[in-house]
Nucleic acid binder design. Structure first.
Length: 363
DNA sequence: AATGAGACCAACCGCACGCGT
DNA sequence: GACGCGTGCGGTTGGTCTCAT
């Protein structure tokens, strides 16, 4: 016996929304909010629609600040990078692209971007150094991500050309990360982050810079198979199904801890399907520094409007000893400007040469 | 002008999860 | 702990549009 349907299928309208329905829904939500109950909303709003359908319509098309139309090159890059890192987790990818919804991105990827990338992949992941071996032998998130990348490459390989463009696709990032940078040879790591030495970092980056392989986006594994990645832009509440629950209108102000922001951590290990969409570990904390202001909240203002401020520095820690980065804004800017992607160190209890590190990327 | 194929994209669907009871 | 409900997610479907023939 399956679960009961969310609504009376016989009495709900399906298919495209009419302008009248749109207007009704919009007006109702702007006036009263969702009331935290999408199932009951259509009846209250006088709509013969399923609650899920209303929710989708609102989040994908009716709420303010939705961006439609062509994707920019930057957006392409972000999508590619994230796809290479985390696969088809569209809601997470959407969170990095203000105004875009996961549905939008998913469609864009499936119909255009994937094809656009055919013939543009400069590296063959199958010919990569040892790093790939460690990925292939586990069901780690890294291996999953690598599988995604490999799969994509395989999909595209018939079209692969050695005269591929030199432009960055974002796919370079994955194969170009070395195993010693990722795992630090310590499986029982208390450190939630992979440790990267300054020496490794610089030689690695510089070497790859020369080859033009620096990616705008990097990931690194943390404790408990945590795959962590970062971005520069503020979070958007762009999941088609409202995965960013700080989207709040009218009377509904719903707080979700540690979900917003350009840095997110996802436990990829304790879910039956291999990943957890948005179920953050309780002991994980991400923080954002807006200059003087340390915020651990979301970027939204509770009314669906993103703040203009972007995080200048992204902080992270193990939840019990989150520390602020020691660099001031100018130093940060200098570091960023010296490289497409820079590392920052944030654990003052460690030496400069071996601090917890995270990637910071900038376009 | 008619038609068929392919592309695009809005919407639907089922599953899994969190939360309250 | 079990259960039911509401929600979020990603995969898939199907209607519409565009273009080639």
């Amino acid at each position: 016996m399956g679960r009961a349907p969310c609504c009376d299928k016989a009495n709900v309208k399906k298919g495209p929304w009419s302008p009248e329905e749109d207007a009704k829904l919009k007006e109702f939500i702007e006036k009263f909010g969702t009331g935290g109950n999408w199932i009951a909303l259509p009846q209250k709003a006088g709509l013969k629609r399923c609650g899920k359908s209303c929710r989708l319509r609102w989040l994908n098309y009716l709420r303010p600040n939705i961006k439609h139309g062509e994707f920019s090159d930057d957006e392409d890059r972000i999508i590619c990078s994230l796809y290479a890192s985390i696969g088809s987790r569209w809601s997470i990818i959407a969170a990095q692209l203000p105004g875009r919804t996961d549905n939008d991105i998913k469609n864009y990827w499936n119909t255009k971007l994937k094809k656009k990338l055919m013939g543009m992949i400069p590296l063959d992941p199958r010919k990569l150094p040892p790093f790939s071996n460690s990925l292939h032998t586990t069901s780690s998130p890294q291996s999953q991500a690598f599988s995604s990348l490999s799969q994509l490459y395989n999909d595209c390989s018939p079209y692969y050309s050695t005269s591929a463009k030199s432009c960055l696709t974002g796919f370079e990032s994955f194969p170009s990360v070395q195993p010693n940078l990722l795992f630090n040879g310590n499986n029982n790591n208390v450190n939630p982050m992979a440790t990267i030495t300054t020496a490794n970092h610089h030689s690695y980056l510089q070497g790859h810079n020369q080859e033009g392989l620096i990616s705008p986006m990097q990931f690194y594994p943390g404790k408990d198979n945590m795959l962590i990645f970062g971005g520069t832009d503020q979070a958007s509440c762009s999941s088609s199904d409202g995965s960013c629950s700080q989207i709040s209108y009218g009377k509904e102000i719903k707080q979700e801890h540690m979900n917003g922001g350009s840095l997110q951590g996802y436990n990829l290990s304790n879910s039956t399907n291999g990943y957890d969409h948005h179920h953050h570990q309780e002991n994980q904390k991400f923080m954002v520094d807006y200059g003087n202001q340390i915020s651990s909240t979301t970027w939204g203002d509770g009314r669906g409007n993103d703040h203009d401020q972007k995080p200048s520095v992204v902080l992270c820690g193990n939840g019990t000893s989150t520390t602020q980065l020691q660099y001031d804004l100018e130093e940060v800017k200098q570091l960023i400007s010296s490289s497409n992607m820079s590392l920052f160190f944030n654990d003052e209890n460690k030496t400069h040469e071996s601090r917890e590190a995270m990637y910071y990327y900038n376009y």
